[in-house]
Every structure is written in structure tokens, then in C-alpha cells.
């Protein structure tokens, strides 16, 4: 394709229109920034950008409204995690006396935030809705070990997620119906 280049008129070739145009544009932006005080700059540590809904930040663990840890230590997230950032220590055969033999819970749950790529696979694969990618994008630490978040920290940062099904209560009731709480192993 041949682009036609029209010959500039005398008026255009005097550059005066270009000068005026440039002056107008620069002055408009100057006015906007200085007088109306609407610069695009976000002064980061003091003012933080609002992240959009659905933003994939750091993955944290959540509790339900009764304070239970929702994770059941199924280790699906550990297996799906592409950079192998998650390490779950399952409880083993012994029973936690505070929760009974209702459902497993992890003995330890660690996410290495230096390895995590914020892909969201763990959230997607979790059958219990126990892990969510939250809005934190700026994780800092002074050492590598500090950047491995353990279960307490993940739960503290994750907070509470409302659980409409409350599976644990139903399971606890079923166990109570068997009148052996906590049920012992045969």
C-alpha cells in the first residue's frame, strides 16, 4: 500500500500550527497535574493502588466462621503447585483431641513465598475452599527462611471465610450420634 503524503500548505510549513498545538497539549497536562492536582503518579508506600477484584495475590489459608481450619490436608495443592512452593505435613495416624476424628487437618502447612508464582492453581484445586489468593502483592522479608510462611502465619493473614455448608459441624454431630466422641481407633 502506498501512503499518500499530501504536500503541506504554507501555513502548515511555517510550523506555527505545530507550535500552537504543542503548547496547547503541554499546557493542558501541566494544568491537570499542577492546578487540578490529578497526576497519574501513585506515591507508593503512602498510598497504595486499589487492586481489582479477582486479583491474584499471595495465597493464604482461611478459617470458617467457627474458627476451624478448613484445610483437610488432602495435599492436592501441594501436588498441583507448579513451583513446589507448598509443603504440607499431614497429621499421621494420631488423632487431635481438640477436633476429634472428624476430619484430618495439617500438622504443618508451609508456603515458600519466594517460590510461589501466584498462579492460583492451589485455590482452584482445593476441594474445601481452604486456600485463597488474597490481595497482598508486596511480601518482604530479610531472609529466605522468613519468607517461608508457616500455618499460623498463613491463617492469621488469611482470616475468616464464611462457609455456608459447615460440613464440620454436621460431621461432628454424626460422630456424636455414635456416642463416642472422640471415636477411638479399633
Amino acid at each position: 500500500m502506498i501512503v499518500r503524503r499530501d504536500r503541506l500548505t504554507i501555513w502548515e510549513r511555517l510550523y506555527l500550527t505545530a507550535i500552537w498545538g504543542g503548547l496547547k497539549v503541554t499546557f493542558r497536562h501541566f494544568w491537570r497535574t499542577v492546578v487540578r492536582r490529578r497526576p497519574v503518579t501513585v506515591q507508593y508506600p503512602e498510598e497504595k493502588p486499589v487492586v481489582p477484584p479477582g486479583y491474584r495475590g499471595a495465597p493464604y489459608l482461611v478459617r470458617d466462621q467457627t474458627g476451624r481450619i478448613k484445610c483437610v490436608s488432602c495435599q492436592l495443592c501441594e501436588f498441583v503447585c507448579p513451583p513446589k512452593a507448598i509443603r504440607i505435613t499431614p497429621p499421621g495416624p494420631e488423632i487431635d483431641p481438640t477436633t476429634g476424628n472428624v476430619e484430618k487437618r495439617p500438622r504443618q502447612f508451609e508456603i515458600d513465598m519466594l517460590r510461589c508464582i501466584f498462579c492460583g492453581f492451589c485455590q482452584e484445586v482445593c476441594p474445601e475452599e481452604a486456600i485463597f489468593l488474597m490481595q497482598d502483592y508486596s511480601l518482604t522479608g530479610l531472609s529466605r527462611s522468613e519468607m517461608i510462611y508457616d500455618m499460623d502465619k498463613l491463617l492469621r493473614l488469611g482470616g475468616v471465610h464464611l462457609d455456608p455448608i459447615r460440613k464440620w459441624e454436621r460431621k461432628a454431630r454424626e460422630a456424636q450420634a455414635q456416642e463416642t466422641v472422640p471415636p477411638t481407633l479399633p
Binding site: R32, T33, P39, T41
Partner: peptide, 10 residues
Amino acid sequence: RLSAAIQDRL
């Protein structure tokens, strides 16, 4: 500062 203002920066 001036160039920043013209480019909507600070």
C-alpha cells in the same frame, strides 16, 4: 518537576 507535570507525573 516541570517535565513531570507536563507528563502527568510528580
